[in-house]
Design a protein around this nucleic acid. Structure first.
Lengths: 344, 344
DNA sequence: ATGAAAGCGCTAACAG
DNA sequence: CTGTTAGCGCTTTCAT
């Protein structure tokens, strides 16, 4: 077992001083070519690698950023992570990813843990529990210490920092309008995970579209619940006693479940009922039929967040310069809605 | 902005020595209750938190483990990560997750980077590229330095370390046999991502089952290709010119695409064609119809890997004590196969 | 009970 | 050109 070698050992082995070794390895002009190459060769031979910890302790910079993800099984977050990861790597930053599983306690613990020298800044998405409790002290504390944070997707006005979000109201509005334009008269909306304001915004957008086109919202067509348990039954029940020819689902899982229900009932999609989903992921792409869906550009969200954070870390943007960036969405037409010939 | 406070500053503020503060904060018996509480109160008031870096540098232990994931969009890996994360958290370890995007270079870079003091050990899944190149020097180097690694899912015999794997041959064998028992006579197999040995093993299991039951493999029913491009066409073509009543797909995406093709052709699943998938994830669960699938217990895989690594880090298991753990699979029956009345 | 000093691995200012 | 020294934040002997 060849334990990792240190600068000190190299110095001893070659009978030079520690600082000479340090300088030689950093290719300093102060060191003679001869000693330099002697040291560098020895280092290479023994696979010397500098200790990251010691470096970070010295520079007060770790070149790593902490990523807080509520739920990695969520395809949107996984894609956002990729975007973050891409930019971080490009700019020479490491990322340390933590999953909170939507738990407040876990979120507080990990963020406190990491903000003690381990990371230079955070890219975080607040957990549902935190959002419900409206307790953001841990975040504000970290901000106060001068550690920059960029919040993405789920945000709150009580936190004053950079944010990267989706325009939920507008996107939901456009999705609903699309259903109306494709001649749906009775449009239902389905939303799991109540309690997060982004879902409320999506319902708002739906209602706004209806109102705008003089359709009176029908309460029986609005299914909002926490979690997916029993969703199948509720959809079936709704379908049993209501005329429905369009369904807007506020998240991917709802979309998939809705599709399953319709298929099971042998209802033709989109001939009899159209579906528009939200957050275009694998489920939308690979369902039968593939779902028309509001694409959220998760990857871009991640990229923008990472770019912003790194700019701040590197002083390109001042700490107090706070900005909220809105990432546009785009409706991806697939086979769960009727083809529209008039674009609008 | 309240910059983070250090032990030194506390010492100065209270006119005591640095070591007194250190001891007081660690609740040492050497310090009088009076000074202790004085210091502790001051620390709390100023939200003192020890610098993790300095601690790690001192102890030569970071209490964090590096996780290498080839592709986070893969549901299996995401679930495994959860399992790892759970155990790590329970045992007081942090994880730092890195995504290689199936790239050899990225894998080498991140692993070298992290193994310089940042992490105590790795839980890694080798990238496809690395596997194809069969270059495992970076892994063996790290192992050589005394840093423990647990490999999961994708492994190779040239690497001598702890491993946690699926029994691919046996699982594929059982899946194929299941199709035969449900009266399928012409069973096709579909596999994307050629080149990884685990997929080869799955094909092997399929062939083994056929042979065992005296079915001569039909080359026209074996679709193996790299990536999913054009898969739809190949499946259609196969269906055009062959009688097929059962399909075993070696991964989730293939399963989803196959389902789409059959649905599109209005082929009744499972009445006309049965499907069994591999790696039971959201796609299998939420497709129409839901797919019978070989469930891989990704979460368990992660848990086992993490437990093993931590045991090693904490000296409960010797470094040279190498073990390969095989995680069983389980066929989950859903609606893409006919109900079997005789269990076997 | 408290403090001085060395050291973890490294860099950097300053001397020589 | 090379070496000495101090210091990053903390722990841990060893004195006092």
């Amino acid at each position: 077992m060849n334990k990792r070698i240190t600068i000190k050992q190299i110095a001893k082995a070659l009978s030079v001083s520690i600082s000479t070794v340090s300088k030689a390895l950093n290719d300093s002009y102060e060191i003679s070519d001869e000693t330099k190459s002697k040291i560098q060769e020895y280092a290479k031979l023994h696979k010397y690698k500098p200790n990251t910890l010691a470096l970070s302790l010295q520079n007060k910079k770790t070149k790593t950023i902490g990523i807080i993800i509520p739920n990695i099984l969520n395809y949107y977050f996984a894609r956002a992570l990729r975007g973050i990861e891409k930019v971080a790597t490009e700019k020479g930053y490491n990322i340390i990813t933590c999953i909170t599983n939507e738990s407040f306690k876990k979120e507080v613990n990990t963020m406190e843990m990491l903000s003690n020298g381990t990371i230079d800044g955070f890219i975080a998405c607040i957990s549902v529990e935190t959002l419900k409790m409206k307790n953001f002290e841990h975040i504000n504390d970290i901000l106060n210490e001068g550690t920059p944070i960029v919040l993405y997707d789920r945000v709150h006005k009580d936190i004053n920092c950079d944010k990267v979000v989706t325009d939920n109201i507008k996107s939901a509005y456009k999705a609903t309008r699309f259903l109306m334009k494709s001649e749906c008269k009775n449009i239902a909306i389905i939303s799991t995970s109540e309690g997060i304001n982004i879902n409320k915004f999506r319902v708002k957008g739906y209602l706004k579209a209806l109102t705008k086109y003089d359709v009176v919202p029908n309460e029986d067509l609005i299914i909002i619940q926490d979690g997916e348990d029993g969703l199948t039954e509720r959809i079936n029940k709704m379908l049993d006693s209501n005329k429905v020819d369009g369904i807007f689902t506020v998240d991917e899982i709802s979309g998939a479940i809705t599709t399953q229900v319709l298929n099971k009932r042998n209802i033709k999609i989109p001939d009899e009922v159209s579906i528009v989903g939200f957050t275009n992921g694998i489920l939308s792409r690979y369902s039968s039929p593939p779902l028309t869906s509001v694409n959220r550009f998760a990857h871009t969200t991640g990229e923008v967040a990472a770019t912003r954070l790194i700019d701040k870390l590197e002083g390109k943007v001042k700490f107090d310069d706070i900005k909220t960036e809105i990432i546009r969405t785009q409706l991806v037409e697939r086979e769960s809605t009727k083809k529209l010939f008039i674009k609008f």
